[in-house]
Design a protein around this nucleic acid. Structure first.
Lengths: 271, 271
DNA sequence: CGACGAGTTGAATGACGTCAAACACAGTGG
DNA sequence: CCACTGTGTTTGACGTCATTCAACTCGTCG
């Protein structure tokens, strides 16, 4: 089960395991490919893999790829930089090619509350530009990253000549509608324990031997996880302790060991 | 201000006005045009007005209308009937042509909790079929109504020949994404008074003379309004009394008289 | 009249947020 | 090696908001 080590035993009987727990912000986040310094000389344009991941299953044809790449307007954004804000009217579809971004909003005290993290390649806003409304939310760079704008008029023009591309854009929007609808349902009818259990189940990586057990690596600060779940960090901390006491998980720094997925799923069903 | 009549004065000083308040279920709901008995002989097919309202601003061309109407599969659903359920995989885009429907889910005790009301013409599910997933939610008929299925393959085939239609479908999906995103944001960050105040502001009909004052007609049972706001009927009742005490509204049966929209907007901002 | 469903009201409970203090840990400079 | 600091998390006490449960009103329908 890995190099674990007991460092503390608490009065509630839970054993706390030590696992060198670097803070997520200190991780050399492996998926954020843009860690090496980007030079203006090197192409920021997305490649085929990126386009295919954005637009869904059947691989894109060469002319489709060429047309998309021709209209792409990439730009580099430094860590913490603003990608777009609620005020500005959307004129382009926007996605992140590489790196970690987040959709959220600025609080009065200058903090940025993450509502939904986005790991490249992934859409930041594929809808607002079509109806010429302001972006519904702010977007910030969590790591240094490359975002790409697709001017809406250009995409629209392309639709006339590439009907299959239209099908993909529609499907991509449909996926977003679906995920938002599920999310809304959860917020309306599930309490905090259920939402957190669900969050864990979605990120659950089973270990080879036993299907019930597994691991969830927390790739971000716990306060950011909390704000995704629309709860406070304190409540999240209490939830983790509570699930631990129920014997469903055990927490070691930024690693959650899941002892009983089925139990978690039960909690996730909630009401 | 209408034929009002004092029937009760409470100790808190608020004056309650009587306005023959039929229950919404007893209203001959004027917008639900399908009240007259529908015969199988008469065409259930949507007309141009319906299509244009579904697909947004620029009016559709004659060939577009013809093609859409050719693929439409209308069916009549009696009051309280099930339109579709969460289990079934979506094969068609679904909308209500005439009448009142509701998206929601069935509770264990057989009740139907309304999550989002839909008044025809309006989409019930324009997204699931594109990605071949089950409907995210149940749909029921609140009044007798006509729903129309658009088989997904047919629509897809039409996209190949009608690129402007693709643009419209995309825009329509984009509008849904936008409204869901706003809704999600509200659920995450606004408390019950703010959500209810917002709900009122959205339905606010100003009276000609004074811009601050106006009326909101409640077209559904208060318990259904409560479940749209993800609160209990008791809480909704208390909210209405609380807003009344603040002098922002006064409630008479199923009519809410708004005395101060700006005040309501302030409450709606909440946090 | 009694039964029923919708709405309201009050008291009790519980879930979650707020506030403040303590703790863990990496980084810094002695 | 050691304090010292800053950030992030944990914990406890407490408050607030919303739900729950149970009564009660009102209008409708039999």
């Amino acid at each position: 089960m890995g190099p674990l080590q007991v460092i503390d035993t608490r009065q509630d009987g839970a054993t706390v395991l030590a696992e060198r727990a670097l803070r997520p912000s200190e991780h050399a986040s492996p998926a954020a490919g843009a860690r090496r310094p980007l030079r203006s000389a090197e192409s920021l344009l997305p490649d085929a893999r990126v386009w295919n991941e954005l637009l869904g299953a059947p691989p894109l044809s060469a002319p489709e790829l060429a047309a998309l790449t021709a209209m792409a307007r990439p730009r580099f954004v430094p860590q913490g930089g603003i990608i777009f804000t609620q005020q500005e009217v959307a004129r382009s579809l926007v996605f992140v090619r590489d790196g970690d971004a987040a959709l959220g909003y600025c609080t009065q005290d200058g903090q940025f509350r993450i509502e939904r993290p986005v790991r490249g390649p992934g859409w930041l806003d594929q809808s607002s530009a079509w109806i010429e409304v302001p972006h519904a939310i702010d977007a910030r760079a969590v790591s240094p990253l490359v975002v790409v704008d697709l001017p809406c008029e250009d995409v629209q023009a392309l639709l006339a000549t590439q009907p299959l591309l239209a099908r993909r854009l529609v499907a991509s929007l449909a996926r977003e509608v679906h995920s938002l609808a599920v999310n809304t349902h959860g917020l309306m009818h599930k309490d905090a324990p259920a939402r957190f259990a669900q969050w864990l189940v979605e990120r659950f990586q089973p270990v080879p031997d036993s299907p019930q057990r597994g691991v969830v690596k927390l790739g971000e600060r716990k306060r950011d996880i909390a704000s995704q779940l629309a709860i406070t960090p304190e409540t999240l901390s209490r939830l983790m302790r509570s699930l631990t006491r129920m014997g469903l998980i055990s927490v070691a720094g930024y690693t959650v060991h899941v002892a009983d997925v089925e139990g978690l799923k039960q909690v996730a069903e909630g009401d």
